[in-house]
Design a binder for these strands. Structure first.
Lengths: 341, 341
DNA sequence: ATCGGCCGTTGAAACGTATCAAGGTCGCGT
DNA sequence: ACGCGACCTTGATACGTTTCAACGGCCGAT
């Protein structure tokens, strides 16, 4: 298993190294006869092109990176699929990374990819990260912020209009005649969460009849949802909310599970709206009404924007904001059972 | 944004290139004074070490790859978390890749990582892939098959004892007094699926009283589960199974959703057991009994085995098989509501 | 017969880094 | 004052690739 390089192949095939390189990168520029000899030498020797050499010579790679806080969260993994599809159309390889909500991991991956000279990075994060990305960009690696609108005009970003999403949810609940609404989620200082709340809040204000309370629940998981539900259940029945807007589907599902098992009827006693429209929301026994970002096109747009940044056409728009959509299911309008499927 | 290398830094700091390299790789071997000058030069110039050069010189990288068919499947993403944890303890970087169940994508990533000279690869696949990995290994990149026991003794693998898992499920249902069992899943020629069936089948045989039918459902998703449920519902009530073992949790959840919405009581009319113990199984309104592979340790073991392969200590065991565990919840033993939480 | 142009082929140079043997400096013990 | 060792520092070298200018041979046109 000696290390075998392009010149070993050349020797074995009886041609010059340049010819082997041509065979690999511009086949057709090399005569069929020598091509055959080279091909044969390659798998006789088990030659594998060494990307380090190629990249060193070229000064660039053909990879992009997508860093997400949590690949197991369906929201991020569905974006990942769009990213990979679009990237492979453009002959780019995607390196996926899971920062696992850890600042340290996030930084490590940012460094690693920068050192690996990826063409650009797509970064999704729950934390404020623009300063960090500014420095990365200053050193020459384009970045696109994913899932969160950038504050700076210079920082490209692809995001959802969360205010609009919150408004959709709030309006829906209010129009169903719900009067005591609750927003469940947090931390509120995260941009996306705050926006969802303020959208819902605006909808309530416009509608006039309803009230909106905030139940702060920084643990945005199924577990957090269960905890939030228990908080609600501690109150007398007539002071509980009759409409709940959860800042994501995991929270909503956790709440729904506990509420129903304690005898609360959904949606009769309380209607529930989630956010993200993950697959399991639809798969729930009472399918979940949810605010749906355009997952399919989202990843595509992120890659396209990144490619523009890489090409550095200075004049392209730097922000793309997508409008979410409300998907109504049984958790808000259910008669007997969901007709969603 | 001119390309800046280690010698530019050296010039700026007034030291030799070797010293800068030492500063980067063996800090402490360089005097505090020069270290300061170098540090200053580095961020004055926005220097980023070029991994291609480093790797070329070293002849190896410090990355491993984990290729999974579908990162959004909780089974694979929970393994990924273990992999990343263990790898970072060992100062290895993990490149994640999503083959998206596409043979072509799988091959592309295999090539890309091989060319990038990763230290080794962890590969999970639904398809037979040992021949392919054999060739990769022959060219010098160690591979560990994840989630599926290798046929060849030479091929390292980390897997679940699926026969045992199937037996656990079958025994559980039989001991609950269920007599008309159904196995739902497929394709049966996939090793893992076939093993689960044969385990369940053995349990039924041992028990003597029950029967086991097979409902072939190659689409192992929530959607597939819904379809399978509809097949069951077409039959008269008294010929439907009273115990269902689904080859994964997604199928089980999809079935449960449709069955319940059509008035079938779970677990009274039919008890349901899933496989994989994904997070959403527990979060379901009727929490799902499931066969749980040891996710936490699984990723760890995979990395450790890969490291052994890389070190090429010829004598280490090449296969690790883990025993799954049955997690009983309301979908098989529910009185009123699950006490799982 | 000569020339021009085309195609395939060649070998050298450069990309950015880590290492290594060799050299330099300093302080300490004799 | 000398020698020795410990510790830093130095600069050349090699890693595997792509590209580029140059070259040889061949064909058709003149």
């Amino acid at each position: 298993m000696a290390r075998v390089g392009i010149r070993d192949v050349a020797a074995q095939a009886g041609v010059a190294v340049g010819t082997v390189s041509h065979y690999l990168n511009h086949p057709g520029k090399v005569s069929p006869e020598k091509a055959a000899r080279i091909r044969q030498a390659i798998d006789a020797l088990g030659f594998v092109p060494n990307n380090a050499g190629r990249q060193l010579r070229l000064g660039r790679s053909s990879a992009i990176a997508y860093i997400a806080p949590d690949v197991s969260n369906p929201f991020f993994s569905s974006i990942a699929e769009g990213v990979e599809q679009r990237a492979s159309q453009l002959n780019l390889v995607v390196f996926l990374a899971n920062s696992h909500r850890s600042r340290e991991r996030e930084n490590t991956y940012l460094d690693v990819f920068e050192q690996n000279r990826v063409r650009g990075m797509l970064v999704a994060s729950h934390e404020p990260i623009e300063d960090r990305l500014l420095r990365v960009r200053a050193r020459g690696t384009p970045c696109v912020l994913v899932g969160q609108a950038a504050m700076s005009d210079e920082q490209a970003s692809v995001s959802i209009d969360d205010v609009s999403g919150g408004r959709l949810a709030g309006t829906h609940l209010a129009e169903l005649g719900r009067r005591r609404l609750a927003f469940v989620g947090g931390p509120l200082n995260i941009r996306q969460i705050g926006d969802r709340l303020s959208g819902a809040s605006a909808a309530v204000r416009d509608h006039g009849l309803a009230t909106l309370e905030v139940i702060d629940m920084p643990d945005r998981t199924v577990r957090g949802g269960r905890e939030a539900a228990r908080l609600v259940l501690e109150r007398p029945a007539d002071s509980r909310p009759d409409g709940i807007f959860a800042s994501n589907d995991l929270l909503a599902l956790g709440m729904m599970q506990v509420l129903i098992s304690e005898g609360v009827r959904v949606p009769d006693d309380v209607a529930i709206v989630g956010y993200d429209d993950i697959e399991f929301g639809e798969a729930s026994l009472i399918p979940l009404t949810s605010v749906k970002p355009p997952h399919e096109t989202f990843g595509f747009a992120a890659v396209d924007l990144l490619v523009d940044e890489i090409a550095d056409r200075g004049d392209h728009p730097r922000h793309r904001v997508f409008e979410p959509q409300l998907v109504v299911r049984a958790s808000t309008t259910g008669g007997a059972a969901g007709a969603a499927w």
